[in-house]
Design a protein around this nucleic acid. Structure first.
Length: 255
DNA sequence: ATGGCGGCTCGCAGCCGA
């Protein structure tokens, strides 16, 4: 079972790259964030033609999530149940026995912003919901753009980022709470070279200088983590013409 | 040095992202 996540920063712009990537990598599941498309604009025909069933929850201009899968998903839920939020950031589905949860965590803007308080509140609701989901589904994966770099290894310049949004102690504590639920950061299951990132700013030649952050993650329940064979970042897509600022992340699970 | 780039919109300037 190959599962993946990719913040595409506009599915309208990135659709050709997504279709090509599906063909090249053949994942069983691909979670997308920042589709920026209302549901009636979603390119369902193109995704089906590529051999995938799409489910999606989108809005105009901002946010928007989708799950593309080889088999028809069931038990599809959009949003965090019990938490009213007009922003389309969460989509869950049952795929081949695996509870698959696609998330796009709020950015937060800065630690003094109202958006930062929203981010922390949102993460608290996510944590509470995932606790219940884990109790119901032992095989569970959370994939997406978490907008949190969990520790120093995930930041190109930890001193410069200290206390900044995406790397602040409260955000990192919220991430740690997800791990305390029993979720495992699949990327850290094995030894890694230094400076492995999933996002690079469009500006300042950040990608070529590898000035990035690791903020896109695949978290696995213990049942799945025990069978996780690999987790890799596909930097090649960030090196393309007109790329998303995020690279895909792919995990392989022996099932 | 608060910019830089890229995508979006009841667009041509201003927002948001991270």
């Amino acid at each position: 079972m190959r599962i993946a996540t990719w913040n595409v920063n506009s599915l309208k712009v990135r659709l050709p790259q997504v279709v090509e990537w599906l063909s090249a990598r053949g994942p069983d599941v691909l979670c997308l964030q920042e589709t920026k498309l209302e549901d009636d604009k979603f390119p369902a025909a193109e995704i089906k033609a590529a051999g995938y069933h799409p489910v999606y929850a989108g809005q105009k201009t901002y946010n928007g999530v989708a799950i593309l899968c080889r088999v028809e998903p069931t038990e599809v839920v959009a949003g965090i149940p019990g938490y009213e939020d007009p922003q389309k950031r969460v989509l869950a589905a049952l795929i081949g026995g695996i509870r698959t949860i696609c998330i796009y965590v709020p950015n937060g803007e800065s630690t003094v912003s109202d958006k930062y308080r929203y981010k922390l509140e949102w993460l608290a609701h996510l944590q509470k919901w995932l606790k219940a989901e884990l109790a119901a589904y032992p095989q569970l994966a959370v994939l997406g753009d978490f907008n949190i770099a969990p520790d120093e290894r995930d930041v190109h310049d930890p001193k410069a980022w200290e206390g900044q949004v995406l790397f602040s102690p409260p955000e990192r504590a919220a991430f740690a709470e997800l791990l305390e639920l029993g979720l495992v950061d699949s990327f850290r299951l094995s030894e890694r070279p230094d400076k492995m990132f999933t996002w690079w700013d469009y500006r300042m030649n950040a990608f070529k200088r590898n000035l990035g952050l690791r903020i896109d993650h695949i978290l696995l329940s213990r049942d799945l983590a025990e069978n996780c064979e690999s987790c890799e970042i596909d930097r090649d897509m960030r090196a393309r013409e007109r790329p998303s600022d995020h690279a895909p992340v792919v995990a392989e699970i022996a099932l």
